[in-house]
Design a protein around this nucleic acid. Structure first.
Lengths: 245, 245
DNA sequence: TTAATAAACGTCATATTAACGTTTGTTAAG
DNA sequence: CTTAACAAACGTTAATATGACGTTTATTAA
């Protein structure tokens, strides 16, 4: 018997995974599926975020990391607790009620939502028991509970956050090109950015460090590789209070 | 008998009140006091945020507004749900345990924390049953539970938020001077700002509208009064994605 | 009448931004 | 080989914003 669970409180994880090859910001989702007794009809067939009840002796941060680790095997990722959801009807969709009954969830469950940032290539989905799958943020499937709302709010939070803090590098490999960063910002924000201005801005940052190396295995002019230095960022970064209202 | 309470979930409200006369950003706190049976010693004597359990049929937003309204009588204030707190030991301080026992709190209570923005002058504290009191953010008293941590995190969130959104006007009267706004930013951020540059920046905003009027009852050159136009802000404001990492 | 003081206006060098144009280095096709 | 295609990388310019100051103006109290 495992640790005791708190029946009406869970954590849910919005896992953002950037696919650098496809230039696509993805969300990792788990399949929910249930047939009727006779197998004659499908009662539940959609996707949900990964989540679980909080244990009796664990913090919210610990719970979220546990849940994320169970699904992906990964630890020490960037994460942010961004909002709690607890509307009385949040588990009250038609399919949700069937699911809640089957799983014996408390019908009034509050969830503390986190988002995580990682590279899709760092996760192995083959043979996972959860039928987990990546979906581009712009092409989400039908979602259970209030998870579409949770994802939308996570995305909005990420949009704002990535403008003021260097969290984007959590979504990229250690070595990246300037255009990789631009593609990522475009994927997150859903906008087009002028390459020449973006490039100049990024190259001028002291914490964006040009490595001597170039890309290999590309069929065009290979790009210069760069890395992000957190050390330089923490020291050099001008914590100026720029009022931009 | 009132609505049924969810025993292990509460909302807590960090009430930011700006005192324009004293140029002070304040927090509204409630006294916790308890003597031993014989009255020979003080068991609990500190302050806490206003908060309460969430009711069975109510959303988190509704719960926070209810709690805020009960204390201040006010509605329709700017509010933000900024974080959930649920560490297993968050009610485990010495005084806290005595209090939790007396009040029959669930020892593992999760709280969803909100902050509210208002003007101290809009709240009447005389004769309130809660012995509520304003404290300057820099001079907080001894606090119960994890409420010091909650206040600190609310303040950090407010610092960031006020740089990118015009929420500061929630803390000021409808008619204000440029220097009022500067004093407010200085109070929130704890920094000094150059008056000439700040003034220029603010006056150039289309949504900062000069009224024809001047201050009255001051013993120096009376300042021009301005107002903030949300309409103009919503229309005119350049929702530019300024990447400032 | 004047001293004190906060409000309001002004200056200037530098930095940043948006909106473009141009050159360079590489591979693949002819 | 030569060249077309194309992404990478560099450059230009005008407009605007910023930081760091100096100066003038309007008001009240002495």
């Amino acid at each position: 018997m495992g640790p005791k669970e708190i029946s009406n409180i869970s954590v849910d994880c919005v896992v953002f995974g950037y696919d650098i090859k496809r230039k696509s910001l993805n969300i990792l989702l788990i399949k929910r599926y249930l047939e009727s007794e006779t197998g004659s009809s499908v009662l539940v067939d959609d996707y949900v975020l990964t989540g679980y009840h909080v244990y009796e002796h664990e913090t919210l941060d610990e719970a979220s990391s546990r849940v994320l680790n169970k699904l992906t095997g990964l630890t020490n990722l960037y994460k942010k607790q961004f909002k709690a959801f607890g509307a009385p009807d949040r588990l009250m969709g038609e399919a949700d009620q069937i699911w809640v009954k089957k799983k014996q969830f408390s019908p009034r469950t509050f969830t503390i939502a986190y988002y995580f940032l990682l590279k899709t290539e760092d996760v192995t989905l083959e043979g996972n028991a959860n039928k987990a799958k990546w979906f581009p943020i712009e092409e989400l499937p039908r979602l259970g509970f209030d998870h579409e709302k949770i994802i939308k709010e996570a995305h909005e939070d990420l949009k704002v956050k990535c403008l003021s803090e260097p969290i984007t590098f959590e979504l990229l490999p250690v070595k990246f090109t300037i255009n990789d960063v631009q593609d990522l910002y475009q994927s997150i924000l859903g906008i087009e950015i002028d390459n020449r201005n973006f490039r100049r801005k990024l190259i001028n940052k002291k914490y964006i460090i040009a490595l001597g190396e170039k890309q290999t295995g590309v069929s065009k002019k290979p790009a210069q590789l760069y890395m992000f230095s957190k050390d330089v960022y923490d020291k050099v970064f001008n914590k100026n209070y720029l009022i931009s209202i």
